[in-house]
Design a protein around this nucleic acid. Structure first.
Length: 438
RNA sequence: GCGGUCAUAGCUCAGUUGGUUAGAGCACUAGAUUGUGAAUCUAGGGGUCGCGGGUUCGAGUCCCGUUGGCCGCCCCA
């Protein structure tokens, strides 16, 4: 039977699973709208060059890429950022600032699958363009907490770690490192949590063994877990840039605190994110137990729009994936059990009953109510079971007895009460009951 | 791309040192049952035991290969 299978890493969504995924998207979309973001969409297939321009040639190995029939080198999009940079860049001068946009889409990466990572996955992407200050980060981090909090997850379930590539730059420069050394050191910092001292191997290979004093200072910095330590450590380095940057930090943390979100926030200079294009604040959301891979990640990328051919335009954004989010919701019992039931299930006796039912069914459906009924004649006892199993709130009973009396019996499948209403009043009664009145 | 591990019905799993026609529970369909809900009973459909090759009188079982799943490495936008 299994002659054809889906491709590795591509998931199929049967109705139950589709309902769960839809639930996630619905709450994300609602949250993004509540924060004043507008939804957009864009092509799934893009010129391969778009990703090479952003990430370098090596990226091709991790893409679904091919040559189309017109000889164009193309790739299924592995991320949204280059695309949205192009969209915004092309109309930058006509767009009201700040540009607050979001998209929920599917992305493709030709990689080995692991828990929480497939070859095709969906992400919510949220970006703000045209705002250089930390006010943009406040909006995005607040929205990120809402994108998880909306499901009933609390600060016991997840948190957001915030770091700052600018401060790392300023700090390492103050310690005397040049640009190339700073970049190599940031790679080491990024790997430190996972590899410990081995993380510095790459740096040592390039620039020689790390001097003990420098290493101690780097380690001290990356272990900073609160703003006070950050201020204290940097207080002895009175560079103008550092002073200004600490003011940005205060604004960011103060804003989030005023929104009541401090309990979700962790200052953590150990996060730098591997991506070279991040230019300022970076942040990642994790589950508190640390069992899952990152839930979401984002940061500022002020140079990217220009690099991809647009005007210079500051930007910051994040992405949150459906796979890891769903895993966390399952783990914490926050994934509802969806009953995709109709509002009304009709119990029908015979051909006359069917005709009478149809006369009500279609207008109710046209009015937007979900109405279902057995397509073929089924024993009454079985129909009541079907009605109950369907998850419907009401059963409408069109049997010979009712037809003879010119009524329809309406059964509340929740409390198992029923009453009769005149045929002519059925639709009005159903509408009234289902819309909350009785 | 590399390493480990697994693969029997839609799902969860039995299946003896290799031995007749591969089983159970759940789920599904139908009936008992055209008049009232998670019950019971009966019957039924559904498997080329992931796929291919080998060893053997005989393979779900042993061997090799391959595909796919899971876990880890690389990577992680």
């Amino acid at each position: 039977m299994a002659t054809f299978q889906s491709l590795p890493g591509f998931r199929e969504f049967y109705p139950d699973e589709f309902a769960r995924r839809k639930h996630i998207f619905d709450l994300w979309r609602r949250a993004a709208h509540a924060f004043g973001f507008a939804e957009y969409d864009a092509p799934v297939l893009e010129p391969l060059e778009l990703y090479k321009a952003k990430s370098g040639d090596e990226i091709e190995g991790q893409l679904f890429s091919f040559t189309d029939k017109g000889g164009r080198e193309v790739a299924l999009r592995p991320e949204m950022t280059p695309t949205v940079c192009r969209l915004v860049g092309a109309k930058a001068s006509a767009l009201k600032r700040p540009v607050k946009w979001f998209n929920i889409g599917e992305f493709y990466r030709y990689e080995r699958m692991q828990k929480g990572r497939d070859r095709a996955f969906r992400q919510l992407n949220v970006d703000i363009f045209g705002e250089a200050g930390p006010e943009a980060e406040i909006e995005l981090i607040a929205l990120l907490t809402q994108c998880l909090g909306a499901f009933g997850l609390t600060d016991q379930d997840f948190y957001v770690r915030i770091s700052d590539r600018n401060l790392w730059f300023f700090y390492l420069e103050a310690l005397g490192l040049d640009q190339a050394r700073v970049r190599a050191m940031l790679v080491a910092v990024d790997k430190f949590e996972k590899y410990g001292d081995d993380a510095f191997k790459g740096y040592a290979e390039q620039f020689g063994a790390l001097d003990a004093e420098l290493k101690a200072k780097v380690l001290a910095f990356l272990q900073i877990k609160d703003f006070e330590s950050l201020e204290r450590t940097l207080g002895s380095l009175p560079h103008e840039k550092i002073v200004a940057r600490l003011a940005d930090w205060k604004k960011l943390l103060g804003g989030l605190d005023a929104m009541g979100l401090s309990r979700y926030i962790a200052v953590d200079l150990g996060v730098v994110r591997g991506l070279a294009y991040y230019t300022g604040f970076v942040f990642e959301a994790f589950d508190r137990k640390g069992e899952l891979r990152a839930l979401a990640g984002g940061g500022r990328y002020d140079d990217l729009v220009e690099k991809l051919g647009g005007p210079a335009l500051p930007a910051v954004g994040f992405a949150i994936g459906d796979v890891t989010t769903a895993l966390l919701l399952e783990q914490r019992g926050k994934m509802p059990n969806f009953v995709q039931g109709p509002d009304v299930y009709c119990v029908i006796g015979g051909e006359a009953g069917r005709r009478a039912a149809f006369a009500d069914i279609h207008p109710l459906r046209a009015a937007g109510f979900r109405v279902d009924y057995p397509l073929k004649d089924v024993a009454f006892g079985k129909q009541f079971k079907l009605a109950a199993d369907s998850g419907a709130k009401l059963a409408l009973i069109y049997g010979d007895d009712e037809l003879a009396k010119g009524v329809v019996k309406i059964r509340d499948l929740g409390d198992r009460t029923e009453h009769e209403v005149a045929r002519a009043d059925v639709q009005a009664t159903v509408r009234s009951v289902l819309s909350g009145g009785t």
